[in-house]
Design a protein around this nucleic acid. Sequence first.
DNA 1: CAAACAGTTTAGCCTTGGCTAACAATTATC
DNA 2: GATAATTGTTAGCCAAGGCTAAACTGTTTG
Lengths: 158, 158
Amino acid sequence: MSDYQQRHPSSLNNLSDDALPPVEQHARQYETVRNAHETELIEDYVELIGDLIRHRGEARAADIANRMAVSQATVSKMIRRLNDQGLVTNKPYRSLFLTEEGEKMAKVSRARHDVVLHFLRALGVADSTARIDAEGMEHHVSDETLSIMQRFTEQQRR
Amino acid sequence: MSDYQQRHPSSLNNLSDDALPPVEQHARQYETVRNAHETELIEDYVELIGDLIRHRGEARAADIANRMAVSQATVSKMIRRLNDQGLVTNKPYRSLFLTEEGEKMAKVSRARHDVVLHFLRALGVADSTARIDAEGMEHHVSDETLSIMQRFTEQQRR
DNA sequence: CAAACAGTTTAGCCTTGGCTAACAATTATC
DNA sequence: GATAATTGTTAGCCAAGGCTAAACTGTTTG
């Protein structure tokens, strides 16, 4: 292993010259991102299904496909996976329901999404941009950062 | 298509009851995230290779594997892809170099990473958390948000 | 300088998350 | 109530990004 630790003389105000983090820490960063990616899509589906039920009264595969800009076949396959994981129940050709656990995930996911979205708006980001960024960011924000974002947002609206 | 547009009576302070966005906008959000995912890994590799060269003098596959917590085989396969895309040059069994284009990507990627990282710190997030979150967030932050983050950070340090 | 070790590559496997095309069921319409 | 339109499912394809095991190259060292 040639990647030994090296002391790097750090100036105090180095905006673009941080040292490399220690190998283990660096590795943990990437692992965290990879893990997030695994659950991300699942959470997005569950969150969307929850939203559709709340706002439309039901969640149908066609709506999900439209909103995700994905084929119905893809949605169908995904629903089976959600079912396998005990997150939704569905009878063939009927609309979907969230299980207890699915509800819980939807709720958590939605809360996180909202915190990020409102934070971005409070920061001064335009609504349409904020929505896009929030969708991507929500799965990569730790609880610590999340609560800081929330506090910031509340202070902002005084 | 059953997913018609619906007016939703919005209270002014609804932190957890936003209406669904219009279908096309919603679809665009998810598409943006999917697109980001495609380039994300590539950028991470290129960025890391650039960092290794800057801080270590060279980038070797084994170091990348260690820092990414991934097998050497995976790195090897990835390097071929980077090569195919004209981002790195490499001779078998030798260390890597970035092409002109690779350099450019590394630079942009690194700048973005730094803005997000410093922003999180300025917000009050602990360093180790900030590093993890930045790694995940950097690919999902629009230019608009990025420049707002930068401005915020600068104001903070006065 | 030969052997051992460290680093790299290749082969082959797996899962995920897309797709299209063909078929099946439900719902709407005449 | 028969037919058309919409919706849902299945089969089979593909690329990406992981992995392990085995083979190969380069370097170090006895």
